[in-house]
Nucleic acid binder design. Structure first.
Lengths: 310, 310
DNA sequence: GAGCCATGTGAAGAAACCTCACAGAAGGCT
DNA sequence: AGCCTTCTGTGAGGTTTCTTCACATGGCTC
């Protein structure tokens, strides 16, 4: 503190965004710059630190372990700064506030939001990211997006509208999956990746596949956020059980593979609105979610299994 | 997070440094830039946020409450980033590592360190800031600076060398002290400022003055760091009981006043070295601390009281 | 092997930043 | 009172840094 020796802060911001998105292009979009700018910032940071933060071929870039560690520390630090920042006076009409799981927001909601904006340019939307419980009044939320498990108790303090099924399955890096067909035995021999907010992902998955109990893991590693767990999986650090909605883009681009497919997760992704009814804007948003959910592809392997099984 | 909306990070860094030091000039020194650069950065930040972060005349600038709140959130965030940053390979000779209380480092040690460097240019010194306990081996510390109270148990796992007396007393902003002579009654009517790491400052001070017990505070406010408590005092938020060594510079510059003077604190500031002896460099540093301590001025009101009383 | 996708990179332009010098304001000192 | 010191605000100008644009590169898919 006496004399702080911080790396270039803008480079840190760029790297943190890269860490969350896993690709420079997406990070560049978030920062409203070109991918070249991000590339240079990250390279500058690597030179400053003298540590490699990225590795792999350019078309399938991943973080090194050092990079993952740094990014995981940077995110909460920037969160803290963001939370402490006094908001400038909000101008214009009051926005529709949507509370959403962070990774679902980043991987599913935000990429689709422009379509909602195009349909309703007069409704400003603000996405507030949160894992935990919420209070419509206190947090000034109009609508929340959460997971709802089939066994969850029914409550009368909110209205839940399911808009997407939940599929999940183990995902790994292509390299880890490469050497021959994936079996349960090979899977169990790999380190397991978990998230702090949903540590029962593995046991839930096993239950949903109808398989017998899972042998204990050879090694476990826990992450604070789903997206860092996915990046760790992409980096080849182990196997993660991930929801289809979170991993879909990385599967499509080949950064991850799901050798055992996906199983229906006996849960739904739901929109939650206040029991006393919601604003017309929130209702529009909810309807839009239902439509978008219906048009989101389902994992091919799981499609028949789930549709038939429920 | 979806789309972070962070203020300019370099401006935040400048403001955080200003928050710790309380003056732009010192912050500029820390950042190795001119005061003009810091001034511009802070102004830019204020414009970006639309919130006044500083107030008061230019010669006696203080943080607003909003500024204090922001700075207090920024410091741990930057600490976190600093801690997560992989250190570049340390070149050159192994430095002498001194563990020190953060505020003592900032207000006393660091400003005097150039003198040690001038006398021993071949001994690189690294100041590691910490409040808590330490382990010479595990933390790779050569020497630690801590407070030692007179009643503290004597241990045989370290050698303590006192090098400065501890005086403490209530400090307030000149404005709060202005209207007439300060009495115990007026003092007790003001909000009290505390630090998380040393909440018993008030009761210790009362005991050391020999006064009767203190009436309960009308209002208390707690800070994570001593320097933020001092800034809060300078901002007129209340009264803080501060060690002379921490407040001396602010008293000299008139940012703070100590209307009741200082009392001998029945404690010493000590250098702690390992029981098995220390390196020649650490011994030199310890001797230098003793000499510097002896030449540090003592508070005028307390001088006779303390020197006679011990 | 043609096409695609994401990143690396050279050069030039844009933007941000810093410095220097001076001005202004407050307080202390004689 | 008047001078002096200290600290911050600011205009102008130079320097560094960052970005962009365009293209190259390497790996992958079909």
């Amino acid at each position: 503190m006496a004399r702080r020796n911080l790396p270039p802060l803008n480079a840190l911001r760029a790297f943190e965004a890269f860490g969350r998105h896993g690709r420079m292009t997406l990070a560049a979009d978030e920062l409203c710059v070109t991918h070249g700018a991000v590339s240079r910032q990250i390279r500058q940071l690597e030179e400053h630190l003298g540590v490699a933060l990225t590795e792999g071929p350019r078309t399938r870039l991943r973080m090194t372990e050092a990079g993952l560690k740094l990014a995981q520390a940077l995110s909460p630090a920037f969160d803290q700064i963001e939370a402490a920042t006094p908001r400038p006076v909000e101008a214009g009409p009051k926005p529709l506030v949507v509370s959403c799981l962070p990774t679902f927001a980043m991987k599913w909601l935000i990429p689709r939001l422009p379509r909602f904006q195009a349909a309703h340019p007069d409704i400003p939307v603000r996405v507030a990211e949160s894992n935990g419980p919420f209070d419509f009044r206190e947090d000034q939320i109009d609508l929340a997006i959460r997971m709802r498990w089939l066994g969850d108790p029914v409550t009368y303090d909110s209205i839940t509208t399911p808009f997407m099924d939940h599929f999940h399955g183990p995902v790994v890096s292509p390299e880890l999956a490469a050497s021959g067909p994936m079996t349960m035995e090979r899977l169990c021999a790999m380190p397991r990746l978990l998230t702090r907010t949903y540590p029962q992902s593995w046991s839930d998955w096993i239950r949903d596949t109808g398989a017998e109990a899972l042998p204990p893991a050879v090694r476990e590693q826990e992450f604070d956020h789903f997206f860092y767990m996915l990046e760790a999986a992409a980096a080849g650090l182990g196997v993660a059980v991930a929801p289809w909605a979170f991993a879909q883009r990385d599967l499509a681009s080949g950064r991850l593979v799901a050798p055992l497919g996906f199983a229906f997760g006996s849960a739904r992704i739901v929109a939650v609105t206040p029991p006393e009814g919601c604003t017309p804007e929130a209702a529009l948003f909810r309807d839009w979610l239902v439509a978008e959910g219906a048009s989101t592809p389902v994992p091919p392997e799981a499609a028949c299994q789930s549709r038939a099984g429920r």
